[in-house]
């Protein structure tokens, strides 16, 4: 319903001069924008092989993973200090759709679909050289139990210590990811993925290991790892 009473009246007509003026203004705006400073150094084009992977890391990846790889939201794993090889393997598996957990297909399949090997290598190198920042400890109170799983495993179910593969301080190496400082929520979800599915073939070795972990042990070790500071 109109708030203002309407009245019939002649329509005010605009002359061609006014129209031409607007067209020239619009053309000027269009020309200014099209010739603007569009540079490969600040591109967000994930389908252009000419864009450096490091550029994509800061212009695209940083949106979720943080400019320094220390993501704020636990929805997105921390990449700072991750082994280069690990990031390369994961991005390659996203690209080929071999890694199919929710985080993979919802977010990463599309972003990685046209990345070149060189771009993937540059992204991996960028995040590897970032410094992991402390992450507040998880909400759990079973730090001792989590520490025990990390350092000693669960002998009753033949779960080896996480440190066996992920490094003495869970710092990661080669294809084994850094776990120290990682978001507990992400660790829990990935352990469940390993336990229940075959959606991460590169981490197939984790399937047997995760099978031997009870839910409370998964929570405890994830919480402990989130608060673990290792450089």
């Amino acid at each position: 319903m109109e708030r203002i009473p309407q009245r019939n009246a002649r329509r005010r007509r605009r002359g061609p001069g006014a129209r031409a003026h607007h067209a020239s203004v619009a053309a000027a705006i269009l020309a200014a924008t099209l010739t603007g400073c569009s540079t490969l150094e600040r591109s967000r084009d994930i389908g252009n092989p000419s864009v450096d992977g490091a550029t994509l890391a800061v212009q695209v990846c940083s949106n979720c993973h943080g400019i320094d790889g220390n993501s704020t939201s636990p929805n997105f794993p921390r990449l700072a200090g991750q082994p280069e090889r690990y990031i390369v393997v994961e991005l390659s598996e996203f690209r080929s759709h071999e890694r199919g957990d929710p985080a993979g297909f919802e977010y990463m399949w599309g972003l990685s679909r046209k990345l070149t090997d060189a771009q993937i290598a540059a992204i991996a190198a960028y995040f590897h050289r970032q410094t992991p920042q402390p992450n507040p400890a998880g909400p759990g109170r079973e730090a001792a139990a989590g520490k025990a799983v990390l350092e000693s495993g669960v002998p009753d179910t033949q779960v080896p210590a996480c440190t066996t593969c992920h490094g003495e301080h869970a710092e990661g190496h080669d294809e084994y990811p850094r776990l120290a400082g990682q978001h507990a929520d992400y660790l829990v979800k990935q352990l469940v993925v390993f336990q229940r599915t075959d959606q991460r073939p590169a981490g197939a070795v984790m399937k047997v290991i995760a099978h031997g972990l009870k839910p409370e042990q998964i929570t405890a070790v994830a919480d402990y790892l989130q608060g673990l500071t290792t450089n």
């Binding site: 203002i4 309407q6 009245r7 019939n8 939201s73």
Partner: peptide, 27 residues
């Protein structure tokens, strides 16, 4: 501000408008 899985925003906005009372006669 974003922290953890949280995100919050507070803001203000405004519009100063001069509107002709008759749509058919904008004078």
């Amino acid at each position: 501000h974003d922290w953890g899985a949280h995100s919050a925003m507070v803001g203000v906005f405004g519009l100063e408008a001069r509107v002709y009372p008759d749509n058919d006669d904008p004078t």
